[in-house]
Design a protein around this nucleic acid. Structure first.
Lengths: 201, 201
DNA sequence: TTTTGACCGTTGGAATAAAAAAGTCAGAAA
DNA sequence: TTTCTGACTTTTTTATTCCAACGGTCAAAA
């Protein structure tokens, strides 16, 4: 069983490599199989369908994200620095996995299953809870005034995601946002984050 | 000449009615002409092409918007109330002209000419200048701390537009956002606006 | 100056065919 | 028994064709 999990991990990593370069829709199960020097049915032995594989990929990416941002969960860091560092992590992930279009709410996929959507909502919820906790701790430290941390966390994340969304929409219709756009996007997110926190004091 | 302008106005108003209901792409020049009980070449006598007509329509809508929001430009109103009322006006326009997809940066149009884009940028700039002025006056009144009002106006408007953008993207893939989505969108924009202003104090 | 019927070149959407992808299965290999 | 595969079927995507409908023009009438 542990061998099986290892294989699943290997497949997911292989899939990620392809997805990062060509996106989910432009990557076929055959290509993933060939990369790993196995047959397509082998893939289907470990994943019942492409959807499940995509789900596995997304799970791994989010797990990596949460691993990083939750690392100093209990460290005593001013909330402004805390959120800035999270924004930068998110920015790295955004660039790295841009081709998967994870920021659009649903990934680059006609495999636009309900399963995937609910999964996304779970991730969003987890991120909101995580941020709510940050706000809660900050309130207890007296950095910011007491509020409904759930609501505020949602609003904060929406305001940040909104900037990303704008960047994607207004972007040149190229495949990839330019370095310059990415830079101004990050700057805006950091500025907005700082003003937001200040507004909660 | 003043007669010509009147006719142009009439055509624009007729076009707006169709655009509001069916969007720009799904409205034909013939339909607009028939609505006004004239022939298609008559339209082309007043507007060289559909692009120009669309441009006229957009100009009118934005003129209406600026007429309303700039009305109490010199009134002594607290900035929070000021921006709230602007947000609500914008919200009304967003709903009313939703089918034209003016919020997406470029309108619902394969007529996606450069002319149109630059025009949009001009409108955006004007709105930014207008908001910068509001921030500037607010600084002079001592409501908020001095800052780079241009930068702040841009960031403020991006944060608001970002929420709209999210609402459009995440929305059910229906033609029109639901009443509920619209309501939460407005609430988020108002909350964010208030926090933003507080963050500038 | 303004308006029109008749006309032309282009385009976008429906329909179809062709290609490629997802997914299955009986059976072999380990 | 668990893992894997070649050969297969079914579904989806892409390419192609075609035609109505659209944007746009023009000579001539009002």
């Amino acid at each position: 069983m542990v061998e099986t999990d290892k294989k699943r991990e290997l497949i997911i990593e292989g899939a990620i490599k392809r997805f990062m370069h060509y996106g989910i829709n432009k990557t076929t199960m055959n290509e993933i199989a060939e990369d790993l020097s196995v047959s397509k049915p082998s893939l289907y032995y470990y994943f019942p369908d492409k959807n499940s594989l995509v789900l596995g990929v997304i799970d791994k990416i989010f797990a990596d994200y949460f691993d990083i941002v939750e690392k100093d969960r209990f460290a005593d860091i001013p909330i402004i620095e805390r959120l800035s560092s999270i924004t930068e992590v998110k920015h790295r992930f955004f660039q790295k996995y841009y081709m998967l279009h994870l920021s659009g709410g649903s990934p680059d996929s006609s495999l636009n299953s309900e399963e995937l959507k609910t999964h996304f909502l779970r991730m969003k919820k987890r991120n909101e809870d995580f941020h709510a906790e940050i706000f809660q701790k900050s309130i207890e430290k007296g950095e910011i005034a007491p509020t409904d941390v759930s609501k505020i966390a949602e609003l904060y994340l929406d305001s940040q995601a909104g900037i990303t969304s704008l960047c994607i929409m207004h972007g040149n219709k190229e495949l990839f946002p330019s370095k310059k756009e990415l830079k101004t996007m990050l700057e805006k997110q950091l500025s907005l984050s700082n003003i937001f926190i200040k507004g909660l004091q």
